[in-house]
């Protein structure tokens, strides 16, 4: 074999390895199971199917590529049905996030519609509340660390820390599933954020007789000590799909089968 061909083959192989591994490294597998969410349903435990989740939240740089290819989601062009006035408000312009924002920081000030569309165009979708919560129960070493005092305190500390949206992705811990930044950078959109039935009057939400929601008996929380989860659910309850927030970004998930199919192909 001539050296030229050998080099060429190595080169091609490395490209293949690089691209496939890049794709695979982007997402981490979360093995399904059951868990008890903070706001459960009648049968209390919820089954979560195995899925793949983005290792990092979507960044400014990635989102910029997206709006370049999909001009209808640029700041000046987005339909007002899909976003309030603050969409990408910290960006310098339609096609630039400017000097102040880091390319590797999570993109924020994104509406639910925009986040959902981004994921769909990648062949993915937004995680459900249950998927997100399930993946986020993990600390560095265990899949469900919710009973560890240190885990709860750590998350609470973050919720109180100011302006963490400016940090770069990967700056917090890697959890049991190999996923970074579920806690510590930004809040994240979920597909069914509007399945959270809280009225914003937290004390009334324990009341079983509410006229605002049908069947609100089910909204009682299961774990009164999980303050971090309370805060996440309160946040979801305060949102509408066209809202954006400086502390709210997103990441995508995909069902396991799809990934396997792609992989075997």
């Amino acid at each position: 074999m001539s050296p030229f061909i050998r080099i060429a083959i190595t080169f091609i192989c490395s490209i293949i390895v690089f691209t496939t591994s890049a794709q695979r490294n982007d997402m981490a597998e979360v093995k399904g199971g059951t868990y008890i969410p903070l706001y459960g349903v009648d049968s209390t435990t919820v089954d979560v199917q195995s899925f793949k989740m983005d290792v990092y939240p979507v960044t400014n740089r990635e989102y910029l590529n997206f709006v370049k290819e999909n001009p209808q989601w640029q700041r000046s062009r987005i339909k007002r049905l899909f976003s309030d006035g603050s969409y990408l408000s910290d960006w310098e312009g339609d096609l630039s996030y400017g000097e102040k924002l880091k390319p590797n920081a999570p993109v924020t000030s994104i509406s639910w519609f925009a986040a959902k569309n981004y994921c769909e165009l990648q062949g993915k979708r937004l995680p459900t509340v249950d998927e997100w919560e399930y993946a986020a129960m993990a600390d560095q070493t265990t899949a469900d660390a919710r009973r560890k005092e240190s885990y709860n305190q750590q998350i609470l500390d973050w919720y109180e820390a100011l302006k963490t949206f400016k940090k770069e992705i990967g700056s917090t811990f890697k959890n049991y599933w190999g996923i970074y930044d579920l806690h510590g950078l930004v809040w994240e959109w979920t597909l069914d954020f509007n399945s959270v039935l809280i009225s914003g009057e937290s004390r009334k939400d324990v009341d079983k007789d509410s006229n605002l929601f049908c069947g609100s008996a089910a909204v009682g929380a299961t774990d009164l000590m999980n303050y971090a989860a309370f805060m996440r659910y309160a946040l979801r309850g305060s949102l509408k799909a066209n809202y954006t927030m400086r502390n709210l970004g997103f990441r995508c998930v995909a069902p396991l089968e799809n990934i396997n199919e792609n992989h075997s192909k």
């Binding site: 914003g200 009057e201 809202y243 954006t244």
Partner: peptide, 15 residues
């Protein structure tokens, strides 16, 4: 009034 205004004033950041 209900909640002393709590329900009507539930406001997300930036709003």
């Amino acid at each position: 009034g209900p909640g002393g205004g709590a329900e009507s004033s539930f406001v997300a950041p930036g709003r």
